[in-house]
Nucleic acid binder design. Structure first.
Lengths: 377, 377
DNA sequence: ACTTAATTAATTAAATTAAATAAGTGGTGA
DNA sequence: TCACCACTTATTTAATTTAATTAATTAAGT
């Protein structure tokens, strides 16, 4: 456990002030002091340091309230950059973003016939290298965040199980640290998505949020007080294989009635007898009632799964992302209706369910946010 | 957010030292310094305060390791007392316990035909008054913890919904504060049970634990880093109405296939065609295979629910309590087997599932622990 | 003579308090 | 109109305080 030292005292205050600026910019020293109950000298001295470090800058003076005009402070967003990586089952996407989540560069490399950890890692390294080449001031890149599908050991930064690639125990963090000499963070992709939505999704200031990725699989991440919840062995949030229909269809995992047997793109496609989930959405959009009904029914089942999660985790907001969420027009109303019907209490019934504001970038920005958490912590 | 002050610095160290003594007693000042990396003068001065406050005491000298003998420190367990209350659907149980969880006094009052909040509260007040009469040094009672069934607003200490009593919005904390002028903590009973197991259950030092109460209903509590997890509106852990069988039987809540339709005493009794869960257990114990099989099958269904919880929350250990857990002989093996079969990863499969060490006292001791958390925090 | 335990005295980090300085606004009377 | 003064608000400087760390000392052994 962290002991009480002068450094702790200071770092606590530094983080309070930095986050006050981040969430309230532009803001003056005096206002920070008022809102945090820290004294003006403390605020001034810490702000001085933050300015010296380059993370905060002064802007023009603000309006007078009957006295001296306040000097407004801003986060120096474009002073630092972060590389975010989304390592999905089919492709590796990379972005270069600044502290505000603004994306400056993008790359995307498809993954085909990957047969070894080395092969996967060399593609990963290559795509990061490509994006780093486009940065002018290399010194200002503070780190690389990787959102990896499957089960990830966050401590060691190892991908323990990457089911769609048929790989195990990929030493991502170790490899990237050796290659790039930067801070490396590795996280499960659904959890990264949750963090991305919580940082950049404009869902307001939340102390708990659940983000559910409805894509080729179903995964979830929980953010509590700005931090990701991992569970004891980093498998918390594996909601795709939550049993909701004990006597239902057999899932690829061998069990019956997992949420995944209803809620993935391919599950929907199979039920509709077409090639892909997108196809079902397209047909429904063309006015074909049959396909719209299939999507609505899928929404109802997703609602059952989400109601379970509400009763277990009780998040303030649930954010839905991934390909399936794109057919929100059909699924969202039936999801909400199901929760309204099945929720035990008023609070449960009223849990807000929204579609991701970030769309396909949620996971990438989540990978970016992995490093921002460190910076702003 | 708590700002960095000298008080914070000190209270952090005080809590570190106090907990080191609690979990490692008897222990010397020197050993505390070594294990916490605090310096000897810091440890000495804080220990001095703790002794003055009466919560820590010195005992005889320890063994020399080649130099001066260390003075050993202990928690002064019997210097303070706490009242713990278990307000279940059928009775109100009260205990007086010391800091080690040792129970000195007990009362139990049945609840019959409760029709108003006032009536419930007057019985509650009366049972606490009875137990307080038996204390010699009243000043040493540091507070009252109440474990209330149903949904509880922890901030205000209000019982929002007490389903089995048909009551709502019972102002427990307010009433007891006015009556007894002590610190009052109110918590949901399943969560209190979880805290009780985590403090007094001898499950080792855990950073996450899930306790599931299998009784007249099914509820759960999660302890993460020694603290209870509540969720956004204090309804986290309402696992009894987790849907595991979408097309199953209708539950009292109106939905189909809730865990509660399988796992409560009355559900088991109904399935077996006898009067109570206890009866089923008795018949199984008499060697009647039919009833043993029913219990085993119930265990398998509970296993499905627990596997869901493992994949969502991923606790280090799951502790089972409540009446149904008493038939562990029949249900525990099938629970464990089901988890082994259905778990997605090695970690999930190996999640430890154990039966409560505290039995019927788990909730009462959890109520006691609600105050100890404050004291040792 | 060497170890280990605990305390005392001096030093240091970083907060708070109190005071000073900086930079306004607004009113008043010549 | 504008110089001047009283009052605000913002920020910095100087002095004080808290509670840690470091270094040295005392206590009590083997």
């Amino acid at each position: 456990m962290k002991r009480g030292t002068f450094q702790l005292m200071k770092s606590v205050n530094k983080s309070i002030i930095l986050n006050k600026i981040r969430t309230g910019e532009p803001i003056s020293r005096a206002q920070i002091a008022k809102e945090t109950t820290l004294t003006p000298p403390t605020v001034s001295s810490i702000v001085k340091e933050l300015i010296e470090e380059g993370i905060v800058r002064e802007s023009e003076l603000g309006e007078s309230k009957g006295g001296r005009k306040p000097t407004m402070l801003l986060i120096n967003h474009s002073a630092f950059f972060v590389v975010g990586v989304d390592a999905g089952p089919n492709k590796i996407g990379c972005v270069l973003a600044d502290l505000s989540g603004k994306i400056y560069e993008r790359t995307s490399i498809p993954l085909q016939e990957i047969t070894s950890n080395e092969q996967f890692l060399s593609i990963l390294v290559e795509s990061i290298r490509t994006i780093l080449k486009r940065v002018d001031q290399k010194g200002n890149v503070i780190g690389i965040g990787v959102a990896m599908h499957g089960v990830v050991d966050v401590e060691t930064g190892t991908s323990l199980v990457a089911p769609n690639l048929q790989l195990r125990d990929i030493p991502i963090k170790e490899t990237l640290e050796n290659e790039f000499q930067m801070v490396i963070k590795v996280e499960n992709d659904a959890r990264a998505m949750a963090l991305g939505e919580s940082w950049f999704g404009n869902h307001g200031s939340l102390n708990s949020m659940l983000a559910v990725n409805l894509g080729s699989g179903v995964g979830a991440g929980v953010v509590i007080n700005g931090k990701l919840y991992h569970g004891a062995q980093d498998i918390a949030g594996e909601v795709g294989h939550m049993t909701i229909d004990m006597h239902g269809e057999v899932c690829e995992c061998g069990n019956r009635g997992c949420l995944q047997t209803f809620a993935t793109g391919s599950a929907i496609a199979e039920q509709a007898g077409v090639d892909s989930g997108e196809e079902v959405f397209r047909l429904a959009n063309e006015g074909n009632e049959k396909y719209a009904t299939i999507l609505k029914e899928t929404g109802a089942v997703i609602g059952v799964g989400l109601t379970n999660l509400i009763h277990i985790i009780n998040p303030q907001v649930i954010v839905l992302g991934g390909g399936v969420a794109k057919s929100q027009k059909y699924i969202l109303p039936s999801i909400q209706q199901t929760i309204e019907e099945r929720g035990l209490t008023k609070a449960a019934k009223e849990t807000k369910v929204v579609i991701s504001n970030l769309g396909d970038d949620a996971t990438l920005l989540g990978a970016v946010a992995l490093l921002l958490v460190e910076l702003f912590e």
